[in-house]
Amino acid sequence: MQRVNMIMAESPGLITICLLGYLLSAECTVFLDHENANKILNRPKRYNSGKLEEFVQGNLERECMEEKCSFEEAREVFENTERTTEFWKQYVDGDQCESNPCLNGGSCKDDINSYECWCPFGFEGKNCELDVTCNIKNGRCEQFCKNSADNKVVCSCTEGYRLAENQKSCEPAVPFPCGRVSVSQTSKLTRAETVFPDVDYVNSTEAETILDNITQSTQSFNDFTRVVGGEDAKPGQFPWQVVLNGKVDAFCGGSIVNEKWIVTAAHCVETGVKITVVAGEHNIEETEHTEQKRNVIRIIPHHNYNAAINKYNHDIALLELDEPLVLNSYVTPICIADKEYTNIFLKFGSGYVSGWGRVFHKGRSALVLQYLRVPLVDRATCLRSTKFTIYNNMFCAGFHEGGRDSCQGDSGGPHVTEVEGTSFLTGIISWGEECAMKGKYGIYTKVSRYVNWIKEKTKLT
Rank of each mutant, 00 (worst) to 15 (best):
D232W: 13
S182F: 08
R43M: 13
S99C: 15
I336D: 00
L103A: 04
V77L: 12
R294A: 02
K260E: 03
G229W: 13
T264E: 01
V4T: 12
Q370S: 13
F348D: 07
E193Q: 06
Q2I: 07
T209D: 11
L346Y: 06
I316K: 01
E116L: 15
N313T: 11
P101H: 06
D249S: 02
K247S: 02
V419H: 13
S406L: 14
V359L: 13
F399G: 09
V154E: 08
E433T: 08
V416D: 00
T445W: 02
G236E: 03
M8E: 08
N245V: 04
V277A: 07
T458P: 00
R294S: 01
S107A: 11
V419Y: 14
G179A: 00
V181M: 12
A308H: 11
R358V: 06
Y352M: 04
I299G: 04
G246N: 03
H303W: 08
I316V: 10
E53Y: 06
D223M: 11
R449V: 14
V183I: 10
N393S: 13
G357V: 15
K89F: 05
G421R: 13
I262M: 01
V56Y: 08
L163W: 02
Y161W: 10
E54G: 12
I297N: 03
Q219C: 05
K137F: 08
R191F: 10
T422P: 01
W261R: 00
N304G: 10
D150N: 12
A250M: 07
C157A: 01
L24H: 03
D93R: 15
M437R: 10
V296K: 01
R449A: 14
S107F: 06
T218C: 04
Y341H: 06
Y330A: 07
A307G: 12
K152V: 14
L60C: 04
F71Q: 15
E270H: 06
K457F: 07
V56G: 15
C28V: 02
N306G: 03
T225G: 10
D150H: 09
E98A: 11
P324R: 05
Y444I: 08
E281W: 08
I112N: 14
G349F: 09
I297R: 05
N328V: 01
E340I: 15
R46M: 13
R449N: 15
S406Y: 12
V377I: 12
S204V: 12
T209K: 08
A380G: 13
N166E: 03
E129V: 03
P177I: 01
E456W: 06
K457M: 12
N310I: 02
R384T: 15
L41R: 09
W118P: 04
E270I: 05
L103E: 12
H34M: 13
K347L: 07
S448Y: 03
E61N: 10
V278M: 07
E116A: 13
Y201A: 09
S411D: 13
D212N: 10
C178I: 00
T445F: 04
F87G: 15
D33M: 10
I299P: 03
A9S: 13
A366M: 08
K39N: 08
T158I: 09
T29P: 01
Q408D: 14
K234F: 12
L425S: 01
K455P: 00
N452F: 05
N313S: 11
H361I: 09
E286M: 10
E27V: 04
A366F: 10
C170Y: 00
E66P: 07
S204T: 10
N258S: 05
A207G: 09
G125M: 02
K260V: 03
I334T: 01
M8K: 14
I214F: 07
P324I: 03
E129N: 08
F395N: 02
